[in-house]
């Protein structure tokens, strides 16, 4: 059965000011200069899996198509290899813009439940903030627990190999001054950085 969907975009599909807002974040300003050449997509090792190419994400962001951008799988597939930023003929920091978009997607909660990438980001930050350090084996276990714990059974071989070679640990690595870190992080809970005033209440750049 062929599914018929509306593909045209109306002006009401745009969230006016979204592009400006992203471009006002330090590091994202150069997006204004994009000439839509597609170099970013051409060098991106993950672009073969993306629903919107990196170039399209740039165009959609600039044109205020907020929902389309934030629900795109592209922003999650970015592995932060910076190939696009290095090759961009307009010096656009595409990787940083992807981070910015990921942050906004997490704030708005627009990603599939149990989608592993934002879950990993969240678990990672929780562990880093709480213990001060990351214990990779424990992080992976938490990730599997929160996403698809059945997958854990498929990992036994890897786990065993790491255990044998002394690379697997169940003891939490931790810093001594955990209280210091907590105080530092708490001090930036309500901080908003951006050249433009927040247009809506949900603009707060906190993690929760």
């Amino acid at each position: 059965m062929i599914e018929i969907k509306r593909t045209i975009k109306y002006e009401t599909d745009r969230v006016k000011g979204f592009g400006r807002e992203v471009m006002s974040v330090p590091g994202c300003e150069q997006l204004e200069q994009c000439i839509q050449c597609g170099t970013c997509s051409g060098v991106c090792p993950l672009s073969i899996y993306m629903d919107h190419s990196p170039r399209q994400v740039m165009a959609l962001t600039r044109s205020d198509f907020k929902r389309e951008v934030l629900s795109s799988v592209t922003i999650w597939l970015c592995a932060s290899c910076y190939a696009c930023a290095a090759e961009c003929p307009r010096h656009i920091r595409i990787t940083d813009i992807m981070y910015e978009l990921k942050q906004r997607a997490i704030q708005e909660g627009v990603y599939p439940r149990r989608f592993p990438i934002p879950v990993l980001a969240r678990e990672f930050t929780r562990m880093a903030q709480h213990w001060g350090r990351i214990t990779e084996s424990l992080l992976v276990l938490r990730l599997l627990w929160r996403t698809n714990w059945l997958e854990a059974f498929g990992m036994w071989r890897l786990g065993l190999g790491l255990w044998r070679t002394g690379r697997f640990s169940l003891r939490h690595e931790s810093i001594r001054q955990r209280a210091d870190l907590t105080r530092m992080m708490a001090s930036v809970d309500d901080v908003v950085i951006g050249a433009l005033p927040p247009p809506a209440a949900n603009h707060r750049r906190g993690a929760r």
Partner: peptide, 11 residues
Amino acid sequence: IRVEDTLAGYV
């Protein structure tokens, strides 16, 4: 040659 065909919308 790796390129985005920006009119077709494919890499």
